[in-house]
C-alpha cells in the first residue's frame, strides 16, 4: 500500500498541481525578455556612439551596465516582482545571471560577509559558469583538433 503511493506519487499529485497557462506565460516572457534586449540595443548604440568601442568589444560594457541595473533592482526587491511576472523572460537575459548572484548573496547576509555573502554568491550562478566553461572547453578542443587537420 505504502509502496504504491510511493510509486504513483507523481500521478496522484498531478491533479493538485496548478496548470501553467503556457501560452500566457510565453507572451509575458516574450515581451519582458524582448524589452530587456531592446534596452540592451539602446545601450550598445550609446557605447558605440560615445566611447571607443568596436562592434566586437561593445558587448562587455553593455552586459556590465545591465548587470549593475539588475543588481540594484534585486537589492531594492523589484527584480523578484518582475521575475514572478515574466518567468523565463527575466531569467534568460544576462540580468537573470546577475539577479541569481545578488539574491543569493543577500539571502545569506545574516551569516556574515565571508561565510555568508562571499561563500554563497555563486550558489545558483555557479552552474552557469561550470557548464559554460566545461562545454566551451570540450567544443574548443574539438574545434582545435578539427582546425589542425583541415
Amino acid at each position: 500500500m505504502t509502496n504504491s503511493i510511493k510509486h504513483n506519487y507523481k500521478d496522484k499529485v498531478k491533479d493538485f498541481h496548478p496548470n501553467p497557462h503556457i501560452f500566457k506565460n510565453c507572451i509575458k516572457a516574450f515581451v519582458v525578455g524582448g524589452l530587456i534586449c531592446a534596452f540592451g540595443q539602446v545601450l550598445t548604440n550609446f557605447y558605440l556612439a560615445n566611447f571607443n568601442f568596436t562592434e566586437e568589444t561593445v558587448g562587455n560594457p553593455t552586459v556590465a551596465t545591465l548587470i549593475l541595473i539588475s543588481a540594484i533592482l534585486t537589492g531594492l526587491g523589484y527584480y523578484d516582482i518582475i521575475g514572478q511576472f515574466a518567468g523565463a523572460g527575466s531569467a534568460v537575459p544576462v540580468t537573470g545571471f546577475a539577479n541569481s548572484m545578488a539574491s543569493a548573496a543577500l539571502e545569506y547576509k545574516s551569516e556574515g560577509i565571508v561565510l555568508g555573502i562571499a561563500t554563497n554568491m555563486f550558489k545558483l550562478a555557479g552552474s552557469v559558469i561550470v557548464f559554460g566553461v566545461v562545454s566551451a572547453y570540450v567544443v574548443g578542443i574539438i574545434r582545435y583538433i578539427f582546425n589542425m587537420f583541415m
Binding site: 545578488a102 548573496a105 555573502i117 559558469i129
Partner: peptide, 19 residues
C-alpha cells in the same frame, strides 16, 4: 567584464541592502 561586474555589484548590493 561581465563576470567581474557581477561579482563586484552583487557584493556591494549585498552589503548595502537588507534582504
Amino acid at each position: 567584464g561581465g563576470i567581474s561586474a557581477a561579482i563586484v555589484f552583487a557584493f556591494f548590493v549585498a552589503l548595502i541592502f537588507k534582504p
